[in-house]
Design a protein around this nucleic acid. Structure first.
Lengths: 252, 252
DNA sequence: ACCTCCAGATTGTTATGACCAATTCGAAGA
DNA sequence: TCTTCGAATTGGTCATAACAATCTGGAGGT
């Protein structure tokens, strides 16, 4: 038998890398809870904090860096390190890199976006408050004013969808919607052309809005589903145009 | 007028923190593309890489640390830094911290999970392949064998849901399902008791499986929706039991 | 010939100290 | 009272060193 070999195999790789870093993350997080720090508050200076935790400054900075890249903290040179304020948000960078590395298709990402936003639209139709309805309506008005400015139109497009997600009353859901939308938005910002008929898009937004305002979840879901499907087609078209444009330039 | 004051106001806070770090992330990512590195491959040693990029080792490590906390890289002391292999995954830690900091309720997280997994179940019914159906079936069998071991049951429960998400054929969606489920799983692992009737849960899993195998998306969606709703109730019950248990201990 | 074991090389991890850059804030001066 | 300037504070970067885990290859035994 080759039992002797078995003993040489690695049992398990517990991935102890960053062992210290994770401990720092945990301890800093406990500090936040103990001191009851709220979004916007400042953490102790690094030099002091490293003494408190009994570790070196680089080790502390590794942990803080991890929390920063998670979007929990934010550093300003000369000022301090703060808990981020504003609405809760997950950094979209990890998703973007993961998608590129593993070759996720944009069709799949649109499909995911559709699932999330259709759900959000349905919930928004049940729970949206007056303030949130007003925000949606304002963004639609802004879209009407941006029919000839694709970049600006896209900004209000995104803002409308963000408002719907927020109106779902579910911050977890809103966070995921934001994360996925951001990845698609950053891509589209570079490829969007002005050859489009934004009138149709704004009309779909109005349908979604009316259904939410009328408290008709199923209509809101259906409108959102249809809208995103059309947006996906428009996106695919833009991608093909961009591709042929690149090809043309390479020929020249 | 107070025009003089206006000039003193900060124009904008460009949040240049980590300016260098983000550059490192970008350059390392370009390196990955240039060298056509695949998951599992090794990066050059830090000492060498820092020379190539013309920066110090600590700065390089800050960037690598960012990529590690994003889940793109993985370091093993004495061995090297590698691109993570295995299925694509987003770290659930950021979501967990964000939820705790902003006080996201578990009800909202269950609601989000339901939206994601109902969608995944519907897609799985359309696209699941034989291999994936087999995996689901095996996990259900394992559940039958774990009816008296809550911890073990939970493991196979999670594995089943992971298999459904994978069978959706949408890696983006599967990644989000995994992220949300992990947060809920880590919480439930601590509170699950054995007072439960797992027979009902395993029966719902079988319904979901049968619907997917029969290629009936709507049935699969409905079964998944109902299953998660019941799981949410069971979870809430466990939380209350845990809370009263804690209270009792504090009295003593 | 094959396996085992050990020592050196490789590589990530942590620590120390110093200096730079941006910000803040109060005191001096108009 | 307001402006201005400089010192103190604080995060950002760097250089160096020592440490720990891992890998590699050869010596020695079976």
């Amino acid at each position: 038998m080759t039992n002797s070999k078995i003993t040489r195999l690695k049992i398990i790789k517990p991935v102890r890398s960053g062992q210290s870093t994770e401990q720092v993350v945990e301890r800093v997080y406990e500090l936040i809870k103990q001191e009851d720090l709220k979004p916007g508050d400042r953490l102790p200076p690094e030099r002091e904090l490293s003494k408190q935790l009994g570790i070196s400054r680089p080790s502390l900075r590794a942990g803080l860096g991890s929390l920063i890249s998670m979007g929990v903290l934010q550093s300003r040179q000369g000022s301090g390190t703060f808990l981020v304020d504003g609405p809760p948000a997950l950094d979209s960078e990890p998703l973007r890199l993961l998608a590129q590395l593993h070759g996720f298709s944009f069709d799949h990402m649109f499909e995911t976006r559709s699932i999330l936003e259709v759900g959000a639209a349905g919930l928004a139709a049940e729970r949206a408050e007056g303030e949130q309805l007003a925000t949606m309506s304002e963004e639609i008005a802004e879209m009407f004013g941006s029919l000839n400015d694709p970049q600006q139109f896209l900004v209000h497009d995104v803002a409308f969808h963000r408002a719907v997600a927020s109106a779902s009353g579910n911050p977890t859901l809103a966070t995921l919607v934001e994360m996925v939308s951001t990845v698609l938005y950053e891509r589209r910002r570079d490829t969007i052309a002005r050859a489009h008929d934004f009138n149709e898009a704004v009309e779909w937004h109005r349908r979604i809005y009316r259904a939410i305002r009328a408290r008709k979840p199923e209509e809101a879901r259906e409108a959102m589903r249809e809208h995103i499907m059309r947006a996906q087609r428009a996106f695919a078209l833009e991608e093909r145009q961009q591709a042929s444009r690149d090809q043309r330039e390479h020929k020249v």
